Computed example of a mutant assay.
Amino acid sequence: MSDNFLQKPFRFGSVFSGAGLQATDLGNSISNHIELIIFTRYGEHRHNSNFGCEIWELDFELIVSESLWEEKFRRSLLKSISAYESRIDRVDVEIHITEVENVYPLRRITEIKKKVDISVRGIIKTTGEKYFFNIALFLSPLST
């Protein structure tokens, strides 16, 4: 595997000016790849319809039980990370869903969203270092 990792987003202006793409470290590269897995819907990847995760199907699902929703998403993400991110081992995924309320008094609008906190832990295979990734997503805008 190559030791050259690229920063995202790509800055193509620097390529056209001859500077090339900006490099990043292994941990950042793993995080970028996990983000790609999270933000890719099953079937969206042209050459591998199994790449991605189930959050896009779950986003529009009526959440009857938050714990069941969290577990279904956790298993989907764990399966995808284990299959497609081979640079980390002993992967553990935690999912927590909460409601966030934003009030806009001037517009007389209250907006309720589901916030999903995602944490991924593991061990980087080549170095033995602990790896940690955390991101928060907002789903289901509900406005009044």
Rank of each mutant, 00 (worst) to 15 (best):
M1C: 08
N4G: 00
F5T: 06
L6C: 01
K8N: 06
F12P: 06
G13L: 07
S14A: 08
V15R: 11
A19W: 00
A19M: 07
A19I: 06
A23S: 11
D25R: 08
D25N: 15
D25V: 13
L26V: 09
L26K: 15
G27Y: 08
G27E: 10
N28K: 14
N28P: 03
S29N: 12
S29V: 04
I30W: 02
I30P: 09
N32C: 13
N32A: 06
H33N: 15
I34D: 00
I34R: 14
E35K: 05
E35T: 00
L36F: 06
L36Y: 09
L36K: 03
I37V: 09
I37C: 05
I38F: 01
R41I: 01
R41L: 08
R41Q: 11
R41F: 03
Y42H: 09
G43M: 03
G43R: 03
E44G: 00
H45W: 15
S49D: 11
F51Y: 15
F51I: 05
G52D: 01
C53P: 08
I55Q: 08
W56I: 07
W56S: 13
W56T: 03
E57C: 06
L58R: 01
L58A: 00
D59W: 07
F60E: 03
F60R: 08
E61C: 09
E61A: 12
L62E: 04
I63P: 00
E66V: 11
S67Q: 13
S67M: 06
W69E: 01
E71Y: 09
E71D: 11
K72I: 08
K72L: 02
R74W: 03
R74H: 02
L78N: 07
S80M: 02
S80R: 00
S82L: 07
S82D: 09
S82V: 12
S82Y: 04
A83S: 11
S86Q: 12
S86T: 13
S86R: 15
R87G: 04
I88S: 08
D89R: 14
V91F: 04
V91M: 01
D92N: 12
D92E: 10
H96A: 15
I97K: 14
E99S: 15
E99H: 13
E101T: 15
E101M: 14
E101N: 14
E101Q: 13
N102W: 02
V103S: 12
Y104E: 02
Y104C: 04
P105M: 00
P105R: 01
L106T: 01
R108T: 02
R108P: 03
I109Q: 10
T110A: 07
T110S: 07
T110E: 06
E111V: 05
E111F: 02
V116P: 06
D117P: 10
I118N: 08
I118T: 07
S119C: 08
V120W: 06
I123M: 11
I123E: 13
I123N: 12
I124T: 04
T126S: 14
T126G: 05
T126Q: 14
T127Q: 09
T127Y: 11
E129K: 10
E129M: 05
Y131L: 02
F132N: 05
F133Q: 00
F133P: 08
F133L: 02
N134I: 04
I135K: 13
I135F: 07
L137V: 04
L137N: 08
L137S: 09
F138N: 07
L139K: 05
L139P: 10
S140N: 13
S140M: 12
S140K: 12
P141I: 11
L142D: 14
L142Q: 15
S143W: 04
T144H: 02
